[in-house]
């Protein structure tokens, strides 16, 4: 037997419990059914027959109030994903550090980039936008305020879209950053689309990069919302800065050969 644990190949990845390909997952959920044998059978059937998991085991079940039962289960996932194929659709922005971004802007644009950011509408969470824009940044990486070639304006939280736009025109922003908490129910989606629509109504969409960020925001969602990019958890200020810098550079001088990479 080999002394080294077997490593997964990236074309068929499954959950891992304590040995490769065991597919172990833990689940917890409530069923709107009275506690009892029927509820247990329902939970098992749901996991086994509908969720694509095998060997479900209920390790905990508890009545919450008449009509509701809570379960904790373990089960095995038989499916696998191909990581190589997933990578094909990710964005083409080249990763850059703070220094690299500044050098790139100096060389390619030769002028400071003006960005303005806010958490818009009724969203009271400003942590996201603060960590990207404020001097302090987070996790030891500076926010855009610290960049030599960026002029960052942070309007804070609960900023009406119209106020953000008025200020963006005022400072002649190149890019608007908004952070937003998007929940499963689509909370705050309307705030994001409204900003895009306002920019369109003002006839300024081509002059502004629109970037959104938040826990559930992906590039796919950003495209639907009408933004130029979407950033989620795990994004650092330099990621956002790299995108803005490279995108502005690409827009200022569209490459002659449309198929060639711009960097």
């Amino acid at each position: 037997m080999s002394s080294v644990a077997q490593r997964a190949s990236l074309d068929a990845v499954r959950p891992y419990g304590d040995h490769l390909d065991d597919g172990l997952v833990q689940l917890s959920f409530t069923l709107p059914v009275d506690h009892g044998p029927l509820a247990r059978e329902a939970a098992l059937a749901l996991v086994r027959d509908k969720m694509g998991l095998i060997k479900p085991e209920i390790v905990h079940a508890k009545p919450l109030t008449p009509g509701y039962t809570y379960f904790v289960l373990f089960a095995q996932c038989q499916h696998a994903v191909d990581c190589d194929r997933l990578a094909a659709v990710r964005t083409a922005t080249r990763a850059m550090s703070e220094e690299e971004v500044d050098a790139f802007v100096a060389e390619r644009l030769g002028r400071p980039i003006v960005v303005i950011g806010a958490s818009t509408g009724t969203d009271t969470h400003s942590v996201g936008i603060d960590s990207i824009l404020n001097l302090k940044g987070f996790d030891g990486r500076h926010g855009l305020e610290a960049y030599h070639w960026f002029r960052a304006h942070n309007l804070g939280s609960q900023v009406p879209n119209t106020a953000l736009l008025a200020k963006a025109f005022d400072v002649e922003a190149d890019a608007i950053l908004v952070s937003q908490t998007v929940t499963q129910q689509g909370l705050h989606l309307h705030n994001l689309t409204e900003l895009v629509e306002l920019v369109e109504a003002e006839g300024k969409r081509r002059d502004l990069l629109l970037v959104c960020g938040g826990p559930r925001i992906t590039d796919e969602l950003a495209k639907e919302l009408g933004f130029d990019a979407g950033f989620s958890k795990g994004t650092y200020p330099n990621d956002v800065a790299a995108f803005i810098a490279q995108e502005l550079a690409a827009r200022e001088r569209p490459p002659v050969d449309a198929a060639a990479p711009e960097l």
Binding site: V89, T91, A92, E200, G203, R205, R206, D219, E220, A222, K223, G226, F227, D228, A229, G230, E247, A250, R251, A258
Partner: peptide
């Protein structure tokens, strides 16, 4: 340019499904 890549106008050579994703700005 869009978050999902650069826009191309494609022609279908057979009946089929394609994800539609055009430019972001109305202009």
């Amino acid at each position: 340019r869009t978050p999902l890549g650069r826009v191309v106008i494609a022609r279908l050579l057979e009946r089929g499904t394609v994800e539609v994703a055009g430019p972001v700005a109305a202009q």
